[in-house]
């Protein structure tokens, strides 16, 4: 029998975490041990998650490849598939195809400082590479994470933010938009670009990894350029609507590239020559 490249693995929902009112994280385990044994992925890759009868949806793998027993995904309840996923319970079976796409070149970053900048629901696509580099902590110099959300209630991975905050080898800066704070909020108040500007960071021997809504990217980029970052040292993970995940269905096409095959990870240098169709 020929290989059906559209056939997903059967996965069991092992754990569900309610991150915010409409964002959940699923921990998924392979139903068949054989699938689990042959599966591997790298930081930055994504997959197609499905509820049978509703369809497929694209999210990055949010867990680190250094943690081998499961994969995790974080999604916001927004459309038909994500609403159906959100209604699923621990023990239910879902589909997963992947991993697809390119990866963050973390080997090339060894010996450098890493600056992660994320806004809102864009922390999940970066969580994988963040944990991957934290799990290989001795290979990297300073690790700084700047994370902003509209309000305290919109911050995802609250339990992990606490863990990162408590670790002496990670610098975490969290911020919420003005008006989004609670009385006991101890983080920054302000938009990500402003907070980044005030953080006293440098571009020396540093890689910046950036992911967030278009408006955040637009205003953060000049800040990074002012800090002296070169385009080749700024990484992001793009998102375009996708269906197949392997460069055939045509949906994520940007110029001659496919976000699903040539991305989702791009440097700013690579992005600059693309038409702005993302």
């Amino acid at each position: 029998m020929c290989e059906n490249i559209y056939k997903p693995y059967l996965m069991v929902i092992d754990q569900i975490v309610d991150e915010t009112a409409d964002v959940k994280t699923f921990r998924l385990k392979f139903k068949n041990q054989e699938d689990a044994d042959k599966f591997s992925f790298k930081a930055g890759q994504f997959g197609e998650y499905s509820i049978f009868g509703e369809g497929e949806s694209t999210f990055c793998i949010a867990s680190a490849p250094t943690r081998k027993e499961y994969i995790e995904c974080t999604f916001r309840k927004a459309g038909r598939v994500t609403n159906a996923l959100a209604n699923a319970e621990v023990g239910d079976t879902v589909g997963f195809r992947g991993p697809y796409g390119n990866t963050f070149p973390i080997e090339q970053w060894e010996g450098k400082n890493l600056l992660y900048i994320a806004g809102g629901i864009a922390l999940p696509p970066m969580r994988c590479v963040i944990w991957n580099t934290i799990d290989l902590r001795e290979k990297y110099k300073d690790i700084t994470i700047v994370y902003g959300a509209r309000s305290v209630a919109d911050l995802v991975y609250k339990h992990e933010l606490k863990e990162w905050e408590e670790r002496p080898d990670i610098k975490l800066i969290t911020t919420v938009d003005p008006g989004g704070q609670t009385p006991d909020w101890k983080g920054e108040i302000g938009f990500v670009p402003t907070v980044l500007e005030k953080a006293g960071l440098t571009s020396a021997n540093t890689i910046a990894i950036l992911c967030g809504p278009p408006v955040m990217i637009k205003f953060t980029m000049p800040v990074l350029k002012n800090l002296g970052f070169e385009d080749k040292d700024i990484f992001t993970t793009l998102e375009n609507r996708m269906k197949c995940g392997f460069g055939k269905c045509g949906r994520c096409n940007v110029g001659k590239l496919f976000v699903c095959k040539d991305g989702p990870v791009f440097t700013y240098e690579e992005m600059k020559v693309l038409p702005a169709e993302y």
Partner: peptide, 24 residues
């Protein structure tokens, strides 16, 4: 033209996943 969509269609518990022609 080869761009396509992938959709699910189910009746009760039984269903299919199919692809169909699409357009940019």
């Amino acid at each position: 033209c080869a761009c396509f969509d992938i959709q699910d269609e189910a009746k009760g518990k039984e269903g299919r996943r199919y692809r169909s022609w699409d357009s940019c």
